[in-house]
Design a protein around this nucleic acid. Structure first.
Lengths: 363, 363
DNA sequence: CTGAAAGCGCTAACAA
DNA sequence: TTGTTAGCGCTTTCAG
């Protein structure tokens, strides 16, 4: 039945020119309402919709945003992707997602693919970018939005996460509980965002009058495995810390598991704090105290930044920089330092882990 | 510097016609090697690549596959998406991912978007499809691949997961350990794949000479929250089961958490088996015994099925049906039924959960 | 306010 | 083997 369905088919059936159909679909104000109604009717009747390829070819606008994440299998990112997709689609954009897995080759390949598909902007949520690659984008004047860090410049927006705020809350929370020996498991050293978190940690420690012990700052890689390895190292230090902050939740989950393996208890033997507040952090055993970084805020800011660059006139004012809050969420992986209190007998894990701990809301 | 960069620019610089450039890029065999070399050189020099939009407009081929998943925040799916993307890209396809969250409106919206972008095929990995929606696709002859179930027909491939194989292994594993009272927490009832798993469960139970108890089959929804709710119900039955199979790992994680909250121990008080073998199943407390369903196999089969439909001549032989194995992975969430053995004193959790349990490899 | 016509960048006949 | 040319389906001048 449906031989071919293009704008001409509609034009013919509605007895108008293809230009009128085009105008109608694009909601050009000058179209006679009566005609418009007729056209819409035919469009509905035929179930017609325009060919996006043709449309972008002539308009030069693909209505596609790229989204580059470092690791789609880290639950943080799917949550972010979801938000990004929803908000982008809301504004009529399609998204092209790519996961680089920290591999420069993948990164460069995926930039190439995005360029080929003529993305109108790219959100680089990979916590660390290869310079040469991004240059390709900049050269072609593709609007970019980075998280944390990236070259400033026209068409480039930055999403600044206030790590300090959240991490300080975490450190203070631990300090109030009585911890003085606090370790930090970082992310990959080359990631700027990982560095920022670590810097925020050291600074917060000092604020509390605690001198950071370099032995207690160990490098992880933002994976569960990395967390396990790092915890193992921490466990082998002569003087062990009583609390551990992790650069992200996956690391913390690895730590939790390592401690479980070692027959140690959380929070009785060690207090643990994560970062991200991914969904499963609610159901780890015990539920994880962590710093929430809103995926939705990030996603919204990223799309907004990109839209600003794409849709606003070149001379109009742009924000260029967006700020994302990070806030502590206290659950049950933090408590008083071991040896500090007379612990109740028995297994606090099996009892729900609610004994002998203090919940202190920071600030 | 770069005024405009199109095929003409290259043609001019290489002193050939645009047709030759086109042929060169498309590796048409009849191009004179010397010319080809010259053309490639210019292409490299200019950093040129063709405009995908124009290309698809004229060729009628978008080289985009759609991928619809039910819930991107369930870790099973990112792992699948990753595989799908890798394999698709390997074959020169881009992918458009959408997460429906079991919402028919989202589903229909996303089908529309894919149709607009002229996807050449869609993998529907949502474990349950709305008929009317898929009809839209079929009407437009878009190749489809479904998981588990879907209307048979030309252009439609099915990925058959051998639930029975894996689930039987699980049930037998439990039976060998001595369990006779085994519960099942299903997925959403309307999902066909969830039903298949449940059917496989009941059948396997009978094979072992156990009559399924309807009270012990409770509906979940494949989320952690659903798992917690279902476990709560199970906990309130007069006669409680000693083992619980879950329709997926997220459910099992919810169950684990609920039991932890209730002060019960796994596997001492309950044995738990999941399904999917998502990455975090390795580090749950205790590590989860589960049925592995390979994401990579699924992804590979899906892409292969789609490519078959798209690239093979209409009369050539096609497989149409692909089989995916599912296999039990024994970890530490399963053990002898409670009361069966003299348990050692103390907290088996804190000791690594390795006491008093039997590891039995099935088959 | 509407229609005719000129492309957007590329591929695929068809000619040479 | 190479070049010329006619579109792919749409938007957007520019006349009317």
């Amino acid at each position: 039945m449906s031989e071919r369905m293009d704008i001409r088919t509609i034009a013919r059936a509605a007895n108008v020119s293809i230009a009128t159909v085009s105008r109608t679909m694009n909601r050009v104000a000058t179209v006679n309402p009566r005609m418009a109604k007729r056209v819409w009717q035919v469009i509905d009747e035929f179930g017609y919709f325009p060919n996006t390829q043709a449309r972008s070819l002539v308009s030069g606008r693909s209505r596609i945003f790229g989204l580059i994440v470092s690791e789609i299998t880290n639950p943080f990112f799917p949550e972010l992707i979801q938000g990004f997709e929803d908000i982008a689609v809301e504004h009529g954009y399609e998204i092209l997602v790519s996961s680089t897995n920290y591999d420069p080759k993948r990164m460069s390949h995926c930039i190439r693919r995005m360029l080929e598909r003529k993305v109108e902007g790219v959100a680089v949520m990979t916590f660390g970018v290869g310079e040469p690659l991004l240059n390709q984008m900049a050269k072609r004047k593709v609007p970019l939005v980075f998280i944390d860090v990236g070259p400033k410049g026209p068409g480039i927006s930055l999403l600044k996460v206030d790590y300090h705020h959240g991490i300080r809350q975490g450190v203070q929370h631990l300090a109030v509980l009585g911890h003085r020996n606090i370790a930090f498991i970082s992310g990959p050293a080359r990631l700027h965002s990982a560095q920022s978190r670590q810097v925020a940690f050291s600074a917060s420690l000092k604020e509390c009058g605690i001198t950071p012990n370099p032995k207690w700052i160990v490098e992880g890689d933002h994976t569960m495995e990395g967390g396990m390895t790092a915890m193992k190292r921490l466990l082998s230090t002569k003087k062990m810390p009583t609390a551990i902050m992790c650069s992200n939740d996956m690391t913390a989950i690895g730590v939790l598991h390592k401690l479980y393996r070692a027959g140690l208890r959380v929070p009785d033997d060690f207090s643990i704090i994560g970062f991200d507040n991914i969904h499963i952090a609610e159901v780890t055993i015990p539920p994880l105290t962590t710093v929430e970084m809103s995926r939705l805020d990030l996603a919204r800011a990223a799309v907004t930044a990109l839209r600003e660059q794409v849709e606003l006139m070149d001379d109009s004012p742009k924000k260029g920089e967006f700020s994302i809050r990070a806030n502590l969420v206290v659950r049950e992986s933090t408590g008083f330092p071991r040896g500090t209190m007379t612990r109740l007998e028995g297994n606090s894990l099996a009892k729900g882990g609610n004994t002998g701990r203090g919940h202190v809301q920071p600030e």
